[in-house]
Design a protein around this nucleic acid. Sequence first.
DNA 1: GTTGGTAGTCATGTTTTTTTGACTAATTGA
DNA 2: TCAATTAGTCAAAAAAACATGACTACCAAC
Lengths: 104, 104
Amino acid sequence: MTTNNFSQGDASCPAENILKQLSGKWKPQIFRLALEGPVRFNSLLRQLPGSNKQSVATALKEMEEADILVKTIVHEKPLHIEYTLSERGQAMVSVFRSMEGFLN
Amino acid sequence: MTTNNFSQGDASCPAENILKQLSGKWKPQIFRLALEGPVRFNSLLRQLPGSNKQSVATALKEMEEADILVKTIVHEKPLHIEYTLSERGQAMVSVFRSMEGFLN
DNA sequence: GTTGGTAGTCATGTTTTTTTGACTAATTGA
DNA sequence: TCAATTAGTCAAAAAAACATGACTACCAAC
């Protein structure tokens, strides 16, 4: 059974849902960094100057709920948590690429 | 001389600018309606239940500043104003289309 | 000259988002 | 046991976005 359950509001406009899932402070940057490999909470805080725990935590949680990122507990030396792009997240790369033509 | 001057914040992330230009309440819907033809202020207010003058006015102004819509005064019977998708706006259709795969 | 349609602006208030700073809790190394 | 690193939570304040209602200004018809 592969029932998915990720909704984030239900606008009549399909684009609106995706826009909501991707916008919000720090989300695009987090997505971008996740593109290069798994990201971690404290590391993100250091890589995103001006960010803060609360906002990053919220962004990560919402992106996880929207099935963009997958949260994994890594049972290794300094036991930690990794966020990786989900399949859906990977597919969203095309959305980002379609935006890159528009320099302004 | 074709000097363009549309900036809306300057994030390092190119996608972030576009996201800012497209998100915000009513903007996706206005874009969608503009896709079918020129749109007008009062007509938008009627077509977007729950909207209000202020928000629609702001959305139109920002979308104009972002060179998504073009404002035109139509010197006709009941002298009015039309907002049409600019070339840049038309090109952005691809961004919207790339989002349509993601039903949730 | 008053009504009705066009397209707004302005000041204010409410609601949502984002930031700040303190605090928690588990694990690891000295 | 103490200190540091991990990854957060929580309450409150500040900032940004959005909504409300009154008001403006232009044009045309009556």
